[in-house]
Amino acid sequence: MRTDNPRTLAVVPAYNEAETAPEVVRSLHRDAPGVDVVVIDDGSTDATAAAARATGARVIRLPFNLGIGGAVQTGFVYARENGYDRMVQVDGDGQHVAAEIATLAAVMDEDPATDMVCGSRFLGDNGYLAPISRRTGIHIFAFLLSRIVDRPVTDPTSGFRLYNRRAISLFARDYPHDYPEVEAVLMVHHHQLQMREVPVRMLERGGGVSSISSGKSAYYMVKVLLAIFVGLLRRRPVVEPGDASPAPASHGI
């Protein structure tokens, strides 16, 4: 274990973000030296993979669009199989600031028991202003989650997160399909991992289309609320080694 110099992987999920994804990779090379970068091209129909490869990043191309959860989980599996100590998710739309990875890492360095560090837009004053509708939704989730996990959670939808080995192996085994961030907070809680939040700057989206368009936000709310309440009633939310597989090959009703 090299606690002084952990190997860190930056996972950049990108779906049709040929404009911004290469920019994100370049900013990672520039502002987060020593961090390996892998771009997960989530079945893009534009030149995202070629553009990302041209910047020198490793590119994993999913054969078709899996959604953000499936794409990021590919990153968890990759990090686990290649023995990374830490993994940070940096969205391909340019919303997350590469220089802030150091902020996340500092929290984990300071308290090695921390399994997941979330960058929050709402802690402290960083001038981030999301549309009012989205902020309302985020605050509803934040309120519910804070009650459930019994500690303040200010930005449960932020994807800008740093994970250690324990969190990587948990999420490599099981990560929610779509809109995974809120559920991931619950899973971390159920598995008694330690989560911390830290204020970070975030930018407006650099381009492309958000995975949460306004038309989908109602579905998003309902789906995540369902996931929260189902998650509450799950005795054990995740398969442990030796359990039946989450996608069993056998037939059963």
Binding site: R58, V59, L62, Q73
Partner: peptide
Amino acid sequence: TKMLAQRLALLEE
């Protein structure tokens, strides 16, 4: 299908 897609992409890489 999700797992297959992920395994395939990782293998290709």
